[in-house]
């Protein structure tokens, strides 16, 4: 049974894991080889990767340790996998730090507030439409537009937060699997089992947060869509000259545009399909290459005439 998630606590715990890993790796390195050996044997890669982990150079450490694991030296694999897990946990922690939303737009509380605001704006639009008061309509429209714009910004922030957390999740999932693999290869390695369990707890908590954020985001998006529909109805009711110019939130929805069901491509305005003979089609396809790279020269000087032509003298 997982404990209720406290994101900061788990982040701190994972930070500790990462730090302990670094210390452990440093100690191991000090034990095994005081000077960093220069070479390209799997053992050298392992030692160099451990040193890079100690130095905080995570991408380099990951690459070296990965090479060490891939070398298939049975004695080195559990050690390298353990350190690789440490590297990936630390990378996830780094990503977590970077993904912090300074604007607070992806905060679940903010998202919940916006959902409520969207409901309020929809209610006001309903009232305005019922009252048929133009000033009320304009005011409700402006309010709705403002809320929709904010919802769009928040949706964007939530989407970014979800994307970044998915990256973190991928890193930690890989790290947990690395720890588990290390424990599987070296059954006596209780540290790897402990780290795997701790990472899996953090993953579970992160998934909880992801779900929470996703649910809140979906709810907000639904409220935003409903608000958009109301605004569309309101716009249809308002006389054209009274339509507020440049009303925000109309065409910058976060949802990508696409063909709606039932919508079809319109017919051409002019011109009709022509029938041509197969011979003409063959000549056309063979002889005419669509090319935008060969522009006409500027001015008449560059125009070459291979032969005298009949026709008009330009």
């Amino acid at each position: 049974m997982l404990k209720p998630f406290n994101h900061d606590c788990h982040r701190a715990a994972l930070g500790w894991i990462a730090w302990l890993c670094v210390l452990g790796a440093a100690a191991l390195r000090a034990e095994t080889s005081a000077p960093l050996p220069a070479g390209d044997s799997p053992r050298d890669w392992y030692n160099a990767g451990t040193a890079q982990l100690h130095a905080g150079k995570l991408p380099e450490a990951e690459e070296l340790l990965q090479n060490s694991v891939a070398s298939q030296v049975a004695a080195l694999q559990p050690l390298a996998l353990y350190n690789l897990g440490c590297v990936r946990v630390a990378q996830g922690v780094d990503l977590l730090k970077k993904s912090k939303d300074a604007t607070g737009r992806s905060d679940p509380a903010h998202v919940a507030t916006l959902t409520q605001l969207a409901g309020e704006a929809s209610r006001r639009i309903d009232e305005a439409m019922a009252s048929e008061n133009e000033q009320k309509m304009v005011a409700a429209y402006l309010l709705g537009g403002g809320v929709r714009r904010e919802i769009n910004a928040a949706t964007k922030a939530v989407r970014q937060a979800l994307e970044s957390k998915k990256d973190i999740l991928a890193k930690w999932q890989r790290a947990a699997a690395d720890f588990r693999s290390a424990a599987e290869l070296q059954a006596v390695d209780t540290n790897a089992t402990y780290n795997a369990a701790a990472t899996e707890r953090a993953i579970a908590a992160l998934i909880d947060k992801l779900n929470q954020l996703q649910q809140a985001g979906l709810k907000m998006n639904g409220a935003g869509k409903q608000l958009g529909e109301k605004m569309k109805q309101l716009r249809g009711t308002m006389p054209m000259p009274n339509m507020p110019p440049g009303v925000p939130g109309d065409d910058d929805d976060q949802e990508l545009p696409g063909l709606q069901p039932g919508e079809q491509e319109g017919a051409g305005k002019s011109g009709e399909e022509m029938k041509i003979s197969p011979e003409q089609a063959e000549q056309l396809l063979a002889g005419f290459k669509l090319s935008g790279e060969h522009r006409l020269p500027l001015g008449d000087d560059g125009t070459a005439k291979p032969k005298d032509r009949k026709g008009k003298d330009w």
Binding site: A70, R180, S181, E184
Partner: peptide, 10 residues
């Protein structure tokens, strides 16, 4: 990559 259940995919 490794002979383990949760190994990384090569």
């Amino acid at each position: 990559l490794t002979p383990t259940e949760q190994a990384q995919e090569v």
